[in-house]
């Protein structure tokens, strides 16, 4: 059985070692995880494979991190296909205001894009963001860039898009 665990907490040294230690002590396996600091808060999402009761996992994790732990069962889904038509990186920056991410991601959704990586940062009134977006077919990058730039200018941010073609060596 796979579980999704989220840990949101004040950062402290040893927190990751404590959480992964609790998972290992229960015979669980940490499969994938992504951790970052958001405005100084520790935010971590983990997928854990574990043959036991969800309540046991929850109790042991709350013992090492009393606040901000959630545990839920991950529904069985087929592995996502790694075959896609196109992969585009979108960068944005500008003065902060409401609705920037909503406006830009709406353009991407309307174009058939699926966001696979996203990070946004607010710092001293500046808003910065990067998204990686997959499409079912090769996209018209010029048309997409124009639509993103127009949506960006409505909310006061500069938005650019480029194709990221990996080279297999």
């Amino acid at each position: 059985m796979e579980f999704v665990v989220t840990v949101v907490s004040h950062d402290r040294p040893g927190l990751i070692a404590d959480v992964t230690g609790a998972v290992a002590a229960l015979g669980g396996n940490l499969e994938s995880s992504s951790m970052t600091l958001l405005q100084g808060h520790f935010a971590w999402t983990l997928v854990v494979a574990f043959d036991a009761d969800i309540e046991v996992l929850r109790r042991e994790l709350l013992a090492v991190c009393p606040t901000g732990v959630t545990v839920s069962e991950l529904a069985d889904e087929a592995e996502p296909s790694t075959v896609v038509g196109d992969r585009i990186v979108v960068n944005l920056h500008g003065a902060d205001r409401r609705g920037i991410v909503a406006a830009i991601t709406r353009v991407l959704a309307d174009a058939g894009g699926n966001i696979v990586e996203l990070s946004t940062h607010l710092h001293e009134g500046m808003y910065l963001g990067t998204a990686e977006v997959e499409f079912g077919q090769r996209v018209d990058l010029t048309a997409l860039s124009e639509a993103l730039a127009a949506a960006g200018s409505d909310v006061g941010v500069r938005v650019t898009a480029h194709r990221e073609d990996p080279d297999v060596l």
Binding site: T82, V83, V84, V116, E117, R138, P166, L169
Partner: peptide, 27 residues
């Protein structure tokens, strides 16, 4: 290729925690 001969993969040269990506196979 010289990295390979030294026992190094691109995985050993990632500059930061966000530099690793799933590989996309284009249709």
């Amino acid at each position: 290729e010289i990295d390979h001969l030294d026992g190094l993969l691109f995985l050993d040269r990632l500059p930061d925690a966000r530099a690793l990506h799933r590989r996309v196979n284009y249709q």
